[in-house]
């Protein structure tokens, strides 16, 4: 099996509920760090972290610049800041210009993560109503990582996953439950 080291997830419109459905089934022994960009209003700040923490056994927190990446932790890009992965496995934030009219932008997270984790990265794109994320998935594939997108017919907004599929940068398409199962199977429960 591939030796994965990290997961990046991008989503926009409809993302809150999709993230809940994806993260809730993850088991405690899931030890990869997960980085998430969800486009949202600056005012919804604290809510997303609190909400996801209530629905997920893994620790969910907002990313802090300079922070060392911990196993089994879910990091959210703060509203209005790009989230980047550093070559020395720390996080950094930037208020650089918007990309695809978005800050945080999914492409910025995916592209920097692709360079750091290369073949050991899983990139996941969920529901969304714009084109952010496709360039990022392309870069993940270019570096030998694995890419999944939500089945567009099950997404609140299809454009984001559909754009990626049309750009032929997707290894697997699945429902949220299937993607969660895929992630859990990376860490099979030890049978006694």
């Amino acid at each position: 099996m591939m030796n994965y080291e990290a997961v990046v997830i991008g989503t926009s419109m409809g993302g809150l509920e999709a993230l809940r459905q994806l993260l809730a089934p993850l088991q405690r022994n899931f030890t990869l760090p997960i980085f998430i960009v969800q486009h949202r209003q600056a005012t919804a700040e604290e809510y997303l972290t609190t909400f996801l923490n209530e629905h997920c056994v893994l620790a969910v927190k907002e990313a802090v610049s300079g922070e060392a990446i911990q196993a089994g932790t879910v990091y959210l890009a703060p509203a209005d800041y790009h989230l980047l992965i550093e070559p020395n496995h720390t996080l950094s934030l930037s208020i650089d210009a918007k990309v695809n009219y978005c800050r945080p932008a999914i492409d910025v997270l995916f592209e920097t993560a692709a360079e750091v984790y290369q073949t050991h990265l899983i990139g996941i794109l969920l529901t969304g109503a714009n084109h952010d994320g496709t360039a990022g998935l392309r870069k993940i594939k270019h570096h030998g990582g694995f890419t999944l997108v939500q089945q567009p017919s099950t997404a609140v907004a299809k454009i984001m996953p559909l754009t990626a599929i049309q750009a032929k940068v997707v290894d697997r398409v699945g429902t949220l439950a299937e993607i969660a199962l895929f992630l859990n199977q990376l860490f099979p429960l030890k049978s006694s």
Binding site: I85, E86, S92, D96
Partner: peptide, 9 residues
């Protein structure tokens, strides 16, 4: 400096 940002730019 943060390398990821510099590299992108």
């Amino acid at each position: 400096y943060s390398q990821a940002s510099i590299k992108r730019r």
